[in-house]
Amino acid sequence: MKMKVGEALLLFGFIGIATTMLLAFLWAPSVSINAFESPAAQRIFYWHVPSAWAAFIAFGALFVGSVGWMFKRSELMWRIHIAGSEAGLATGLMTVWSGCVWGAAEWGTPWDWSDVRLNTFGLLTLLAIYLVLGRNSQPDGVETRDTFAAFGLYGFILVPFTYVATRIWSIRHPGPVIGTDDGGSLNADMGLILLFGTLSFTLLIFGHMLTSMRITSFEQRIEALQIQLDGGK
C-alpha cells in the first residue's frame, strides 16, 4: 500500500529511536561514578531529553492550533490543536516516565514535588490528558473547540516557564547541558547520540502529528458524508 508522508516519518522516527536505544547501550561512553549515583541509569538521558524536546514541539503545536482556532476559526488550526494535544500526551508521558525511572535510580525518589521544572512539565502532561479525554467526551462543535482551545492557550504559558525554571531556581533537576553560554558539558560521542535521538524523536513527532491531522480530517469528512446520507444539510 502506498505510504503517506506521515507514515513514512513515523517509520523512520521509530527506527531512529530503536537505533538510539542500541547506541545508548552499546556505544555511549559511561559516565563517572563521581558525577552520578547511578551511571547505568544515566543512559536513559538519550531517551529522556529527546522526548522532552518532542514534547515541547507538540505543546508548541497545541498552542499554535489553539490560537489559530480562537482568533481565525481555522479548521486546519483545530486539527493542529488536536494533533498537538495527542502528541503532547504521548511524549509528555514518555518524558515523565523516563524521568521517573532515572530519578528513582539517581535520586532515590521518582518525583520531587518541590521541583518547579518537574511539576510544570507534569502539569503540561496532565493538561494534555485533560484535553484528549475531555474532547473525546464531547460532541464536536464550536463550544467544545472554544473551551479546549482556551485551556490549550493558558496551559502553554507553562512551556517557557518550565524551560526557564532551571536557570532561575537551584533545584534537584539537572540544569541545561546544551544551549549554554560556556558551550555545555557534553562529551562529543554523547552529543552525537543525543543529536541522533533528538532527530529521531522529531521525525516521530511530526509523523504522528501529520497522521493525526489526517485522521481528524477523515473523521470530519465521514461526519459530513453521514449527514449527507441521512438526508440532512
Binding site: 547501550f25 547511578s38 541509569a41 543512559r43 536513559i44 516516565w97 523516563s98 525511572v101 535510580a105
Partner: peptide
C-alpha cells in the same frame, strides 16, 4: 543497573 535500564527501555 543495566538490566533495570534495559527493561525500562524495551518497555518504552
Amino acid at each position: 543497573g543495566m538490566t533495570y535500564l534495559a527493561v525500562a527501555y524495551f518497555g518504552m
